[in-house]
Design a protein around this nucleic acid. Structure first.
Length: 480
RNA sequence: CGGGGCGUGGCUCAGUUUGGUAGAGCGCUUGGUUUGGGACCAAGAUGCCGCAGGUUCAAGUCCUGUCGCCCCGACCA
C-alpha cells in the first residue's frame, strides 16, 4: 500500500512542524488529560489514568517480587522537619507549596506539601529501627507530590504529579548501593520490556545529584525529536540522612551505628515519555502491556443482521486473554479507525458481512497500519502475535531513532556543528570530572550532561572541553 | 523569572484597525438515509465576548487595572 502512512486527517499538528504542539494536541485529543483552573494541575482522564494503572500494576509487582512493601505517609511536612538535612532543604525549598492556615487559624509551624518524602520516612524510620534485626526496611509508596514549577507541561512537568517513591534502609553501605543499582535495573527493565522504550542507565554528575544524595543514578531516554528525558532515578544516600535524623541501630557487635539509605522513583512523566517516544502524526501509539485497550473491534455494516452478534462473540472470546473493546456506536467505521489510532490502540480488528461469511476478520497493527486477514479460529494466537509485533516494532523504531541520533564528539565545536547539522540527540564525549567544564559545555553547545553511562567506553583520552585527562564518558543532550 | 502569543457557544477561531442587532466551522440533540479510512440531508439547542473599573446615547471593539492559560528560554521528575 503506497499511501499506507498517509495522514488521514488534519486534526493534530504534525510532529515535524511543531513537536511541542503535536504533544499537547495528543494529550488532549487522545483524552489523556484536561486542564484545570490551577496552572500545572491537570485532570488525568479515565483513558490516561488507565495507562497509569497499568504502569502501577506492573511496577508494583516488580517491587513486591524484590521484597518491598507499600506504605502511605502523610502529605504534610512541618517546616522544622524539612530543615533537618541541609542540602535536601536547599534543593527543594524553592519549589514547595506551603500551608499557612488551618481553617481560619494561622499555623505556628507552617506545613509544606510534600515535594518528596525523604524526611517523613526518616522521621518514621528513626522511631521504628532499633536493631540490625529491623533491617532492611524496604518501603514504597504510591502518592502524589507537589512542586511549584514555573513552567508546566502535561505529564512532563506538572505542579502536582503522581509517582512512586521507594525509601529503603540497610545495615551496610554495600547493601544500600546494591539496592540503588537493583532498582535502577528494574526501571530499565520495565521501560525496555513493558514500555518498549530503550534507556541509557547511568550515573548523574555531582551537579545533577538529588538534593541530599551521595550518588544519583538515572535512566535517560531519547525522545523522537532528539531531546533527552530522565525517565527514572535511584539515589544512594549513604548515612547522611540517618545522621541528620538520628536513625541508629544496634549492630550484631552491640555497637550503635548509622544505617545506609536509598530512594528511587518514577512518575506519570513515563506517560509523556511513551507519547514522545512512540507517537506519530496519527496520534498516540501505546505499548501493548500498558494500553488500556489492547484490541478494538470495529464492526462494518453493523446494522446488517448478525454482524454485531458476531462481533460481540469475538469480543467475549478475546476478553479471556486481552483487554478488548467493541465499538458499536453509530459513528462510521472510518471515524472509528481514526479515533482508535489517535488513542494508540495497538491492534484493530475489522469485521463485516464479507468477513463473517468467510469466517475471518481483518487485523491491523497501529504502528505500521499493516492489515492481515485472519481466520476466526486462529484469532487468539493472531492477536497475541500482533501485540508482540507492535511491542517489538515500536521498540526497534525507538532504538533506531536513538542510534541515528547518537554522536561521538571530541571537542565543543564539533558538538555544536554535529547538533546543528543533524538535529538534537545524544552526544557521547569524554569529561575530566570538573564541574566548570560541564558548565562550559552546556553554555556553549546547549547540551547538558545527562549521565555517565554504566557501560563506559573510552573514545578519547582527554576531556572534550579542557583537554586534560578524561575520567569518564558522558552522554550530553538537550533535555525536557 | 525573562521573551512571545492568546482569553468570544463544548472545541477551533473570525469579528477589535474605523464603537452601532453576537458570527462561522466542528461538536451536541431529534428524525431519516448511510457504513471496508474521520458519511449525507433536514430541523433544533447552546454566549454576562476572562474579570473589575472607566469613556460613551451606545463597548466584544476604546482606556486603566487585574486574573488566567499556552509556547519558547533558564531550573527541575
Amino acid at each position: 500500500m503506497a499511501d499506507n502512512n498517509r495522514k488521514m486527517v488534519g486534526s493534530i499538528t504534525s510532529m515535524d512542524e511543531d513537536f511541542a504542539k503535536w504533544y499537547t494536541d495528543i494529550v488532549k485529543k487522545a483524552e489523556l488529560i484536561e486542564y484545570t483552573s490551577v496552572k500545572g494541575c491537570m485532570v488525568i482522564r479515565p483513558y490516561g489514568y488507565a495507562i497509569w494503572e497499568n504502569i502501577q500494576r506492573i511496577l508494583d509487582g516488580m517491587f513486591k517480587e524484590t521484597g518491598h512493601e507499600n506504605v502511605c505517609m502523610p502529605m504534610f511536612i512541618p517546616e522544622s522537619l524539612l530543615q533537618k538535612e541541609k542540602d535536601h532543604v536547599k534543593g527543594f525549598a524553592p519549589e514547595v507549596a506551603w500551608v499557612t492556615h488551618g481553617g481560619s487559624e494561622k499555623l505556628e509551624d507552617r506545613l509544606c506539601v510534600r515535594p518528596t518524602s525523604e524526611v517523613l520516612f526518616c522521621e518514621h524510620y528513626a522511631n521504628i529501627i532499633q536493631s540490625h534485626r529491623d533491617l532492611p526496611k524496604l518501603y514504597n509508596q504510591w502518592v502524589s507530590v507537589v512542586r511549584w514549577e514555573k513552567t508546566t507541561r502535561p505529564f512532563l512537568r506538572s505542579r502536582e504529579f503522581l509517582w512512586q517513591e521507594g525509601h529503603t534502609v540497610h545495615a551496610t553501605a554495600q547493601e544500600a548501593i546494591e539496592e540503588t543499582e537493583r532498582m535502577l535495573d528494574i526501571y530499565a527493565e520495565f521501560c525496555e520490556k513493558y514500555l518498549a522504550m530503550p534507556v541509557i542507565k547511568g550515573r548523574k554528575t555531582d551537579s545533577d545529584k538529588f538534593a541530599g544524595a551521595e550518588a544519583t543514578y538515572a535512566i535517560e531516554a531519547l525522545m523522537h525529536d532528539g531531546k533527552a528525558l530522565q525517565a527514572g532515578t535511584s539515589h544512594y544516600f549513604g548515612d547522611g540522612f540517618a545522621k541528620a535524623f538520628g536513625i541508629q541501630y544496634t549492630s550484631k557487635e552491640n555497637k550503635l551505628v548509622y544505617p545506609h539509605q536509598t530512594s528511587w522513583g518514577v512518575t506519570t512523566r513515563l506517560i509523556g515519555a511513551v507519547i514522545m517516544t512512540h507517537g506519530d502524526d496519527n496520534g498516540l501509539v501505546l505499548p501493548p502491556d500498558i494500553a488500556p485497550v489492547q484490541a478494538v473491534i470495529i464492526p462494518v455494516m453493523q446494522h446488517k443482521e448478525g454482524v454485531l452478534e458476531k462481533c460481540a462473540g469475538l469480543k467475549n472470546m478475546l476478553a479471556e486473554d486481552f483487554r478488548v473493546k467493541l465499538d458499536d456506536s453509530d459513528n462510521s467505521p472510518g471515524w472509528k479507525f481514526a479515533e482508535y489510532e489517535m488513542k494508540g490502540v495497538p491492534v484493530r480488528i475489522e469485521m463485516g458481512p464479507k468477513d463473517i461469511e468467510a469466517g475471518q476478520c481483518v487485523v491491523v497493527t497501529r504502528h505500521n497500519r499493516e492489515k492481515t486477514t485472519v481466520k476466526l479460529a486462529d484469532i487468539k494466537a493472531a492477536v497475541a502475535g500482533k501485540l508482540e509485533e507492535v511491542r517489538s516494532g515500536i521498540y526497534e523504531k525507538a532504538l533506531k531513532n536513538r542510534e541515528n541520533r547518537t554522536y561521538s564528539c571530541m571537542n565543543t565545536d564539533e558538538i555544536i556543528k554535529t547538533l546543528e547539522e543533524n538535529g538534537d540527540g545524544f552526544v557521547k564525549a569524554m569529561w575530566c570530572g570538573d564541574e566548570a567544564c560541564e558548565d562550559i559545555v552546556k553554555e556553549k553547545t546547549g547540551a547538558g550532561s545527562r549521565c555517565m553511562p554504566s557501560e563506559q567506553e573510552k573514545i578519547s583520552d582527554v576531556c572534550v572541553c579542557c583537554g586534560k585527562p578524561a575520567k569518564a564518558l558522558v552522554y550530553w543532550g538537550k533535555a525536557y
